[in-house]
């Protein structure tokens, strides 16, 4: 089978574009979550879950440029400092690909622990940068809520994805 490099890159580019639009859709969904009274303090980070699942579970390569652009759009939509969310998404990507913990095997059972480590380490770096830039320590309750809700949502999302996968497999059979 001969595949010319141009087709390989074209395929990769089209995949990236599709991924970009899906993640952009998710950004808007995430922002609109702010209208729910339950997310009074802060909204969960659906995008970090999506990036993690794309890279680790579905083996979809999300390019760094897409994440960078998505982060900039996210910053513009939310009005936060330009570059903060781009950095957060890039760190999520970096840690997902390179963070290897000795007490975790690569099975899907330990996904939650791995995601927790990835998410918290990325968040701490971004949060510290934000403190340096603003020269003020913000209230911790929305931050803890944000972390907690994101970590609670993650296993539910994984379970529902597994369930959908199981059902489609059953239908196919």
């Amino acid at each position: 089978m001969y595949i010319k490099p141009i087709f390989y890159f074209f395929n990769k580019f089209s995949n990236n574009i599709l991924c970009f639009f899906l993640l952009f859709f998710l950004i808007n969904v995430e922002i609109s979550f702010g209208f729910f009274l339950i997310f009074d303090n802060s909204i969960p980070s659906l995008l970090s879950i999506a990036i993690y699942l794309c890279l680790r579970k579905f083996s979809i390569h999300v390019s760094s440029f897409s994440l960078f652009t998505l982060g900039l759009l996210y910053d513009v939509l939310l009005g936060s400092n330009i570059g903060i969310n781009s950095m957060f998404f890039l760190l999520i990507k970096y840690f997902t690909e390179h963070l290897k913990l000795s007490f975790i095997d690569n099975s899907s059972k330990d996904d939650w622990i791995h995601f927790t480590c990835v998410f918290i380490s990325s968040f701490v770096i971004t949060f510290l940068l934000n403190i340096i830039v603003n020269l003020t320590i913000p209230d911790f309750s929305p931050i803890l809520f944000h972390l907690g809700v994101t970590l609670i949502i993650f296993p539910f999302l994984v379970l529902s994805i597994n369930f959908i996968h199981f059902i489609t497999k059953l239908i196919k059979n």
């Binding site: 390989y8 960078f68 330009i82 570059g83 950095m87 890039l90």
Partner: peptide, 27 residues
């Protein structure tokens, strides 16, 4: 047509670092 994995991952890592630094300067 697929470039070698080792080469792409190294390049990707460099790009990732460059973009993180770019974000830092943008902030």
């Amino acid at each position: 047509g697929k470039p070698s994995n080792n080469k792409t991952s190294k390049f990707g890592k460099k790009i990732n670092f460059f973009l993180i630094l770019l974000c830092l300067s943008l902030v």
